[in-house]
Design a protein around this nucleic acid. Structure first.
Lengths: 148, 148
DNA sequence: TCTTTGTTGATAATTATTATTATTTATTTT
DNA sequence: AAAATAAATAATAATAATTATCAACAAAGA
């Protein structure tokens, strides 16, 4: 599912970013993967085809993307940050042994929580978003988890 | 609200830990604070009265506490880990400008989510816990947030 | 074209954390 | 109680992840 370049260009430009080659490939990798990669992982993926791009640029670019609201930074119980290009509201399932972060989107759950906060007000606070962190471990690490 | 030493000793011993002075003071700081401090912050607090305790010991001790199920390790959008001595199920409100992590416990919400997962099953996955991460920012950083 | 500004790559520096090891303290054995 | 063994700690070194610096380059404006 290769996102077409035009779309990527528009997305970058639409967020007030100058379109550069490095930004294109970094954003493209994020679009193509659903594994919520770390900076290092993104760097590994792109450097085959683009050996000149430096790790520092990957870090800086990711930070710029986060600032501009293009991607989200997500934190894990290990020491490193991971990045998520999926911007719709969704939750994350953390597998404590495989370290995977699996997306979990459920409209009913979202509504449930949103509804709850319509009643429950948090004063002196401007609520931006909520995310459910579900943690546990895969029973068979080789297989996918399945939500039914 | 100084926790009495006997209680702390019992808690440590009850989790299979040898009672030492450093473990006592580290656990005590965690009990006394609701700010979810980082290792560094704990170190700063205890070193006034205990200048000989080393930062490495703080890190190691915290890790031991986590392993033994005495405390929880929580991750923030910045790069560092923070520790939480409150072990009952509760959620966290994260203020993106003051970097505060504020506890948010609500039985109704817990029930709502628990109920949801009774119906919605996640296959090939052993669900351990879920926590709602609420983020946003305080309107007046000087004042507390209030839940009504 | 000249000037200014933004971006990148190379590298150094910093921060948070973990590992190592000698020493200290506690526990068990004799 | 002394010696032997084990566990915990302090000091320090090492590592990993991330950020800062800065010169070179590219793009945009005057």
């Amino acid at each position: 599912m290769l996102k077409d370049l035009q779309y990527i260009k528009q997305t970058l430009a639409g967020h007030g970013l100058k379109v550069t080659h490095q930004r294109m490939v970094i954003y493209q990798v994020l679009q193509e993967t659903d594994t919520h990669p770390a900076a290092e992982g993104i760097y590994e993926k792109i450097k085959k085809k683009n050996p000149s791009i430096s790790l520092g640029t990957v870090y800086k670019t990711l930070e710029v993307f986060v600032e501009k609201g293009l991607i989200k930074k997500i934190n894990t119980s290990e020491g490193n940050m991971r990045y998520d290009a999926r911007m719709d509201i969704h939750n994350h399932i953390y597998c404590t042994n495989t370290k995977e972060i699996i997306d979990f989107k459920d409209d009913e759950l979202d509504m449930l929580v949103r509804d709850f906060f319509k009643r429950k007000k948090i004063g002196n606070f401007n609520l931006k978003e909520f995310r459910l962190h579900i943690s546990g471990e895969k029973i068979d690490p080789g297989k996918h988890i399945e939500i039914t």
